[in-house]
Design a protein around this nucleic acid. Structure first.
Length: 618
RNA sequence: GCCGAAGUAGCUCAGCUGGUAGAGCAAUUGAUUCGUAAUCAGUAGGUCGGGGGUUCGAAUCCCCCCUUCGGCUCCA
């Protein structure tokens, strides 16, 4: 027996408001507050409540659109003055006040003319505009609560009184209909849940996300910095971050050699000819930096590595017997990103792609895409990521001029990508208009410990470059043929991936990645010589160890090492020195007792080899 | 780039309506030599993001620029 009262109906599989007329023979189901479908309706109704509060508090405000989104809702307003965070409190209170009145939320059906008159009379030009654009027929549904009427498909909760557990979170600007040239609106974000627990849990996640922020942890753990005087969006890898990058790169190279790739190193700048030929100056110029003149020729800093890899290909004649060629490079590229889009390590102006280009025959393409897909998922799993979201980005058929190549090419390329996803039975979302200028792509997003998704892998199909550069191989028939090419980056960029790793692990990196794996804390200065011996032996064994030789108490050394999130702390005193062993402590777990140093090293090496996700030493 | 907010010591932050800067941590010096999350004391450290203006006087008021943050847009 469900004690909750139904808040919605599901009629023939469609969500409807309570009170919707039911025809005989309809399949009707009641929907309760805690069903997953209800949450979206809560969000949408909360958005309406927000708009209602706004026009009461700020008469003259126009309300634009207010949908439910992934973690809550927002509503866009055209206000007389910009909103500030401090306004949220008052708006929230007004919402609570309106909710308390428990106004019924009623669906009404109006004619389009009636709606147009209503919105224009009430000074709601934005709504009137939406009405003309979105509503095709002559009938339109609106929802009314108290004196507030909104153009809306619905459904909604039966009454505002159900909206008890919400919180307004932030205010920011957004363009009307996403158009930079249009009005700038004030967007208010909030979240809502049917119960207090859901809201509290969501707020806890937000707090945790703030604590995991890689920008904060990057400073605390001294991993990297960005320095405004030296240029925004440019990353400085500090020794500890650089150690981690070295581990990542070394592993990445090893996997690539094992996986049938060869590595390349190519220049950072190239002549105008190169970028003209590749099409970058036609399609990608906005993201490229101004040219530099060298001996009266224009050179551009590279925003992508592909033209260089193609030049290597073209340096000699290729046979079909050479293909496929898989060439990888940790290639550092520079792209102009608009200042407002920069964000820590996740969006920068100079970054290193773990790039590769696979050049193959048309007959090999399906196999190569499949192989790349498998390789990528396997590599990401090694870093501790288990869940993925896959997107297939294709061109927008409505837009021309943004894409290079013929229709036939685009259709064939998409079919190839779909085939690989289908063979592996991977669910994906088709994203129209998201393709790169030279071809469609598969993007893989990884899910982190907080359930957030981050774009890393991109596998991009490309016929265009090979045509533009007149790439050829000699086929079995003795004639020249044009090869196909796949661009791919698996981790994406080392900078972004590093940022994601920091947030995913909250700085508690698995042993194989940890910048400092063990910290030695001698009890007093008399133990220093022994501590130095232990340090040398750990380093000789290939472990990343450090010695805290300050004249501080052991408590202090442990505290500092704990704050630095060092997995193992080795405490050395007269007893260890005498017995020739060590005592160690596992991060956040405390003393584990004494152990022979060789034994400790052996066990750690096993954990490193396994890429273990915990610090337990068995 | 756009809208809003912000920028004070290495870090986190205080400094009311204008009267030329202050704390904690970090650093450093000295003392201390300690058994599993902060030993004590002293010292030093800032053209208050940059430039211009108003004023007898600007961290504080005004203008421009830079950067950061929240979004929009864009993206690895």
């Amino acid at each position: 027996m469900n004690k909750e009262k139904a808040i919605l109906l599901k009629i023939n599989g469609e969500l409807k408001a309570i009170g919707t007329p039911v025809a005989p023979g309809d399949a009707v189901e009641e929907v309760y507050p805690h069903s997953p479908e209800a949450l979206e309706v809560y969000r949408h109704s909360a958005a309406h409540l927000l708009a209602q509060a706004m026009i009461e508090l700020f008469p003259g405000t126009q309300y634009g659109v207010g949908p439910a989104v992934e973690n809550g809702f927002y509503y866009d307003f055209l206000t007389e003055r910009p909103l500030v965070e401090a306004d949220l409190d008052g708006i929230g209170k007004k919402m609570a006040h309106l909710a308390k009145q428990n106004q019924p939320i009623r669906r009404e059906v109006w004619t389009k003319a009636q709606a147009r008159d209503y919105f224009l009379e009430h000074g709601q030009q934005l709504k009137a505009e939406l009405l003309e654009e979105k509503v095709a027929g002559d009938e339109v549904s609106v929802f009314r609560q108290g004196g507030f009427v909104d153009l809306c498909r619905g459904p909604h909760l039966p009454a505002t009184g159900l909206l008890k557990h919400f919180k307004l979170l932030s205010v920011a600007a957004a363009y009307w209909k996403g158009d930079e040239k249009s009005h700038s609106l004030q967007r208010v974000y909030g979240t809502v849940y049917p119960d207090a627990e859901g809201l509290a849990e969501h707020l806890r996640l937000l707090k945790e996300a703030r604590e995991r922020d890689h920008r904060l942890l990057g400073r605390q753990l001294d991993l990297f910095s960005l320095q405004e005087e030296a240029g925004p969006g440019l990353v400085y890898w500090h020794p500890r971050g650089a150690r981690m990058r070295h581990v990542i790169e070394t592993y990445w190279k090893q996997r690539h050699y094992e996986g049938g790739y060869e590595l390349l190193y190519t220049p950072h700048i190239g002549r105008e000819w190169l970028w003209q030929t590749s099409g970058h100056l036609n399609f990608y110029k906005d993201s490229m930096y101004a040219p530099m003149a060298i001996d009266e020729m224009n050179y551009y800093l590279k925003p992508m590595n592909c033209p260089f890899h193609i030049m290597v290909y073209k340096s000699s004649q290729r046979s079909y017997r050479d293909l496929p060629l898989r060439w990888a490079e940790l290639g550092t590229v520079y792209r102009y990103e608009r200042s407002g889009t920069l964000h820590g390590l996740l969006r920068v102006r100079g970054f290193t792609q773990d790039d590769a280009h696979i050049i193959c025959t048309p007959g090999q393409i399906d196999g190569e895409i499949l192989r790349t897909l498998d390789f990528s998922l396997d590599l990401l799993r090694a870093f501790g990521f288990r869940e993925f979201k896959i997107e297939l980005s294709v061109r927008d058929p409505q837009v021309s001029g943004k894409y290079a190549g013929s229709d036939a090419m685009w259709i064939e390329a998409e079919a190839s990508l779909v085939k690989a996803l289908t063979v592996r039975q991977l669910a994906y979302q088709r994203m129209e208009g998201e393709a790169v200028f030279y071809g469609p792509k598969i993007d893989i997003k990884i899910k982190d410990a907080l359930g957030r998704f981050w774009q890393c892998t991109t596998i991009q199909f490309d016929f265009n470059m090979s045509e533009r550069f007149a790439m050829k191989y000699i086929g079995a028939d003795g004639a020249a043929h044009q090869p196909y090419m796949v661009h791919r980056a698996l981790l994406g960029s080392l900078e972004r991936f590093f940022g994601v790793l920091i947030e995913h692990y909250r700085g508690f990196f698995p042993l194989w990645l940890a910048p400092v794996q063990a910290l030695i804390a001698p009890l007093n200065d008399d133990c220093l010589p022994y501590a130095r011996q232990v340090l040398e032996r750990l380093r000789a064994a290939g472990l990343r160890a450090e010695l805290d030789s300050r004249s501080e108490g052991v408590n202090r050394k442990i505290r500092d090492a704990e704050n630095q999130k060092v997995p193992y702390i080795i405490v050395l005193g007269p007893q260890e020195q005498q017995q020739g062993n060590i005592s160690f402590r596992i991060h956040q777990q405390g003393d584990q007792g004494r152990i022979a140093l060789d034994d400790f090293v052996q066990r750690l090496k096993i954990k490193i080899e396994e890429k273990s996700q915990n610090y337990e030493v068995s």
